[in-house]
Design a protein around this nucleic acid. Structure first.
Lengths: 230, 230
DNA sequence: ACAAAAGTGTTAAGAATACACCCATGT
DNA sequence: ACATGGGTGTATTCTTAACACTTTTGT
């Protein structure tokens, strides 16, 4: 076999994950406090080096577990977001960073190596982060906001049984605007993504709410995206 | 500064580009015949190694010029498509491949190192390619087909002045189905992406066609995607 | 009886679809 | 005069958007 190039030296490869979760109906993102240079002490997305011998998924699983005590099997969904090339990630030279987007419900982060101090922050109130991580989170928000308009992706953020009000609140949190209750329900029910159960959620001094569940707990795309204004 | 890891060895990094162009109203893709192992003699997307010291864009520019004599400035649009990790790209070990999508009009490929024999193939009639390049092209087709429904991306494929019939044919080629002439025109003109000129295209034994131009020669997104069936 | 969230329907405006004939030109 | 692709309008159906009151429960 012929040699490819005289010098086959590549940039280093890193992975970073944006993990979103709804906490008190607010879209929140998992951050860790960096325990090492560069940017030691700054908040950042969980991630790390992708060494030879690991796929990107494996590198993510390992980093997530080391830094936040989270097993990727506990994520409801993970997908590639964007690849940032020649970031300043690695002080020793050029780097390529593969950013992923993960969605979960109910995860409680707890670092095995406690120094990373993993925590969820509301996306509308995050500090200045290491690297270009603020930018990555913006990308992730945009991706999510566009995907809820043409898929059942909210299945990954809501509990298995949920009320229509809760679903609407999730949409409102992600889109960042209020929706009309009657129109939302009429429209969403017509999509055949969810079905009612016989259970009710009794909460406070008011009428109990019917609980619904998603038909599929995997992503499903609509043939036509629904309207912006929903 | 503290060391990151004892061993910081990353997969190799490659880039590949899917360049689409309309040729005789058919969506076509630029391929090169590999002059080196692996897959010597097989058709493949143009691409190559991304060494330290080059951004992905630079690596693409260089590979495209070496293998197809094309300068990236001649592309009307280029964007990231997807990143494939741990492909079998590099016989010497694991690799990450950054795939890009480029659109152009009128490019005539000509290798400077002629062994790569660059040529456009109709996307509906491409041979079995090296690596997972057939798959990458499918991704690229899907991306393009979805983007023509919510952006002016066709500006990058059509000549500066074009007739509505030509525009419609572009849509039909990319979507793979026929569209209604009256509805297409009414809808597209209502989007305010193009404007008529005072020029006409005289072609054969029939009425001359009015020529239009795009308002912007850069990508522009619609606030609401137009309907699937257009 | 009151407070609080759940639930429900109609109307008007706009968008999508289906569909067929005349127009301007070259030969 | 005919063949060829360019150009145009209307009626129907479906979707969206705007909007307010009744129901069920706990206290």
């Amino acid at each position: 076999m012929q040699k490819l190039d005289d010098e086959l030296v590549s940039p280093n490869v890193f992975v970073d994950v944006v993990i979103f979760q709804l906490i008190d109906n607010e879209l929140s993102v998992l951050l860790v406090k960096r325990a090492r240079d560069p940017y030691e002490g700054k908040w950042a997305l969980p991630g790390g080096h992708n060494p030879v011998g690991e796929t990107a998924s494996q590198a993510i699983s390992r980093s997530l577990f080391e830094k936040a005590g989270i097993k990727t099997e506990r994520l409801e969904l993970i997908e590639q977001l964007y690849t940032f090339d020649n970031t300043d990630r690695d002080p020793r030279g050029p780097a390529v960073t593969l950013a992923y987007l993960g969605l979960s419900r109910n995860l409680v982060p707890k670092a095995s190596k406690s120094t990373w101090n993993p925590q969820f922050f509301p996306v509308n109130d995050i500090p200045q982060l290491a690297f270009d991580h603020n930018l990555i989170i913006e990308h992730a928000k945009d991706r999510l906001a566009s995907k809820i308009l043409y898929s059942n992706i909210t299945f990954a953020l809501l509990p298995r049984l949920f009320t229509l009000s809760r679903l609407q609140e999730a949409y409102e949190a992600i889109l960042g605007r209020k929706l009309d209750k009657r129109n939302f329900r009429k429209k969403y029910l017509s999509l055949d993504l969810i079905k009612p159960t016989n259970e009710y959620h009794m909460n406070g001094a008011h009428r109990p709410a019917k609980l619904y569940r998603f038909n599929k707990h995997g992503i499903e795309y609509l043939s036509r995206s629904f309207d912006e204004a929903l």
